[in-house]
Write a protein that binds this DNA or RNA. Structure first.
Lengths: 116, 116
DNA sequence: CTGACGTACAACCATGTGGTTGTACGTTAC
DNA sequence: GTAACGTACAACCACATGGTTGTACGTCAG
């Protein structure tokens, strides 16, 4: 499985891009089926230019790519980056789990739990 | 396992909060071990007030909680929200996988075990 | 060729964000 | 009680963001 490593700046961009309901919806849509920018724009109550900007933000974060097809620009999802973001959150859970394990070990060995 | 459902506004706040390297580092730190706000502040090359604001952002996103302990305010992680964010990204992968499955079905190619 | 469509991009505005400094307040140590 | 510590919060600044409108350009249909 392809899991690219993201540098901090790209992580910034990925999470920032996902911090907007419209952009999350665009990602969901193109995951189901690719769509041109205007096709996407028709789905939202905002100007075409606004949607175009949202797509640009997703593109800079490598969450989607655009592919010229005649006079249309078709938006595709970039699953690799989405997966990488998920892996990052998994890492947080690992740290937490590791800590719980260490605590259990300490409590098991030295009977340190004085307060609850 | 506790997995709270996040409303869109909270998802906005969670991802926005994670879109900053300092805040991600704070989350990592308190996942390993709780720390007071000043203890955290000592780790970064910025004013105490700046770190305090970062903690406030994480708190509004329910990624951490503060707990008064004497005159200190101890920052704890909120694993439930972190987990919920991970689940959200998993959902994207599910959509993608569902689409791949549908395409394979249409193509009549229902073999299993081929890698992508 | 012409007109309509899809796109790109600049200018502009309001608002939010990330940082600063300064001030105030409760709590602990002496 | 007083001093020092940990915190909270307001005011301020620079800059990014999310939206708008307007203009320009390439591409396809007629």
């Amino acid at each position: 499985m392809v899991v690219r490593q993201l540098d901090p700046d790209e992580v910034d961009r990925v999470f920032a891009a996902l911090a907007d309901a419209t952009r999350r919806d665009i990602v969901t849509r193109v995951l189901r089926r690719e769509a041109s920018v205007t096709a996407l724009a028709r789905s939202y109550e905002m100007s075409f230019a606004a949607v175009q900007k949202h797509v640009a933000v997703l593109e800079r974060a490598h969450l989607v790519t655009k592919q010229r097809q005649g006079r249309e620009q078709v938006v595709h999802p970039d699953v690799v980056t989405i997966r990488a973001a998920g892996r990052l959150l998994d890492r947080y859970e690992e740290i937490w789990r590791g800590r719980i394990d260490r605590m259990a070990e300490i409590l098991g060995d030295t009977r340190e739990g004085d307060d609850s």
